[in-house]
Design a protein around this nucleic acid. Structure first.
Length: 212
DNA sequence: GACCAGGCACATC
DNA sequence: GATGTGCATGGT
């Protein structure tokens, strides 16, 4: 498994080159994006982020000071805007109350407790937590999302009932715990899934075709 | 006008 | 533990 995973990584890296993820200017923007992109196309999230930037409130203090309704209005293009406004506020409340509004202090927690802390916030599940940990906190955690599952399925590495933890373990048990590797690998999988694994027919063109 | 997109919480059985 | 449902916009 270890060799296969590394082989796949090299092949994808050669095919697509470095992806330079996550598409955001600051760790806080990563966190906001991670919540906004829940079951939502990224192009819609971009519009919402643009609105927040235009309103000059894409920072912990700025967002905290907005009313739920005003925040919901700004993130409207991202869909589920009422519930996502609450989820952003839920995160901000914990950040303010327990970490003085400082992401640096939040990310100082030991990794296990940090992940549990994020998961304890209503509206932050495993994928959102792990995206925050890897892409905002630079922690060695592998992110599993719909793209990752689709690629694993298409290439026969899991069956349909696989849990988040099982899929995550495939990568984390067999790869060196490198933030850079986990970051790049997940981004490459997204690229592969977007281009080649969306429909079965596309698999004939897949860069991984013929690998076993 | 369906169908889909980088989830998650909650109700019910 | 498994299954079903609400949440909502914008692109194809």
């Amino acid at each position: 498994m270890k060799n296969k995973l590394l082989l796949i990584y090299r092949k994808l890296h050669k095919e697509f080159g470095p992806r330079d993820w996550w598409p955001a200017d600051t760790p806080f923007e990563v966190i906001v994006g991670a919540i906004l992109t829940q079951n939502t196309a990224w192009t819609n999230v971009e519009k919402a982020i643009r609105n927040l930037k235009k309103a000059k409130c894409l920072n912990p203090k700025g967002l905290s000071e907005l009313s739920n309704d005003r925040l919901a209005g700004l993130i409207r293009p991202a869909g589920y805007y009422n519930i996502k406004a609450k989820r952003l506020k839920n995160f901000l409340k914990v950040l303010q109350k327990e970490f003085g509004g400082s992401l640096k202090r939040l990310f100082k927690l030991p990794l296990k407790r940090l992940r549990e802390k994020l998961l304890s916030i209503n509206g932050i599940g495993p994928e959102t937590a792990d995206s925050i940990l890897l892409y905002a906190g630079k922690k060695p955690i592998f992110v599993i999302d719909a793209y990752t599952k689709r690629v694993l399925l298409r290439h026969g590495m899991i069956d349909d009932g696989a849990t988040y933890e099982q899929m995550q373990a495939i990568f984390m048990k067999h790869l060196p715990r490198s933030v850079k590797l986990f970051n790049e690998y997940h981004a490459l999988i997204v690229e592969l899934a977007k281009g080649y694994c969306r429909k079965r027919a596309h698999c004939t063109l897949c860069p991984l075709k013929g690998m076993k």
